[in-house]
Design a protein around this nucleic acid. Structure first.
Lengths: 212, 212
DNA sequence: GTGTGTGAAAGTATTCACAGCC
DNA sequence: GGCTGTGAATACTTTCACACAC
């Protein structure tokens, strides 16, 4: 029996970094690199080698001592760590400019995110194709979620309705939300919510510009 | 002479939180709240009261003991902390769906970010209005930056050209960049770069979905 | 009494540095 | 010799808890 893996908790800062290692490795693979050391990878993503080795160590031993990492193997292991060895069913709520931009973003599907439907309240948009087949009416949101399976709801509605929409999606059974509306979204249920927040990013830049 | 302020460094995690306190306070002010305690504000933004008091303490003493914070006063102080007591001249490079969505986002200007121009390489877009007057040709980027003043470049180009565009903007004198392209942008100069990264956010959700 | 401002304590995250394996 | 994997050391962040001001 192999020695039991120590159960150290994965730092929350590690997770987004794994996705960056993955992207960089895919880039390197496309250019023909088949082996890489933690030092080279660190240089490419702008961090330090110990960080990478430590991050990976929470999940297993993926390298060869004295050699480095086999790029293809590490890509596959990272995909497993991140849950990208399966498809996630995704919807976009809000088919305005931003929602349409996200729907049309190629490489969305590449990592296994399957965009199933888009929703909007505007009669001018419902029925039109904004990148994922005909836009559905937001009034059918619950019906759709119960009938189909949805893992991730991407919210690109105006701020005023975003919290209500999120509450509805979560109540209907969506376990995770990626919110682009400029509100601090809350979800009481055991749903997972992440924010992408233009105005916070701009203000953060403003702070560092001021104190430059 | 007042006692000299202790010079404790501001944690980098504090800065984005300030912007969220600000947004929440503006929301509360719009609803007529004129005074608030750290406990109430903490509840509204989903953190704990000591965090808020500690964050504010890096910048000064803004409250009244036994009472709380005067909302309007705290808003003004936070704006000063974040450098929002002045306007920042901003351009958007890449006038596709995403760039257009950002340009049309109302509340962009509200916090003092002044969108001056947009750039694109596509003949079909140059000259059209995408939210900030006629779109200019990216080939005129350097000329524009040298002639006018630019504090922030928002990059919404395809990944393949983003790093080159960022290098050009920085070389021409732009001190800060907000990058939406799915690359880990680097800038050698003392430029400030921040990332907004859809694919990292989705992969992070994927991780937490898998381990839910 | 109430709620801020802040040192000190507890909890996380990053970096170092070296044993162990190729 | 070279590079990984990892305990130990350092650095950073958050939370506690209480003196102090209103």
């Amino acid at each position: 029996m192999p020695r039991a893996r120590k159960k150290q908790p994965v730092p929350s800062a590690t997770v987004p970094r794994l996705s960056q290692y993955l992207r960089q490795l895919q880039e390197l693979q496309a250019r023909g690199t088949s082996t890489i050391s933690s030092r080279q990878l660190a240089e490419a993503v702008g961090t330090n080698p110990a960080q990478i080795r430590k991050d990976l160590s929470y999940f297993g031993e993926f390298g060869i001592r004295g050699v480095g990492y086999e790029v293809e193997h590490l890509i596959n292991e990272l995909k497993k760590c991140l849950g990208l060895d399966r498809a996630w069913d995704t919807i976009i709520i809000g088919a305005g400019k931003l929602g349409t931009a996200l729907a049309r973003y190629r490489g969305f599907g590449k990592q296994g995110f399957h965009l199933m439907a888009m929703f909007d309240t505007s009669k001018a948009v419902i029925g039109k194709n904004r990148g994922a087949g005909p836009v559905l009416s937001t009034s059918d949101l619950e019906k759709y979620i119960r009938r189909h399976h949805v893992d991730i709801a991407i919210v690109t509605t105006p701020a005023a309705v975003a919290q209500t929409i999120i509450d509805r999606a979560v109540a209907a059974g969506v376990p995770s939300v990626l919110n682009f509306a400029p509100i601090r979204a809350q979800a009481k249920k055991p749903a997972i919510v992440r924010q992408v927040d233009l105005s916070t990013e701009l203000m953060t830049l403003s702070y560092y510009l001021k104190n430059r």
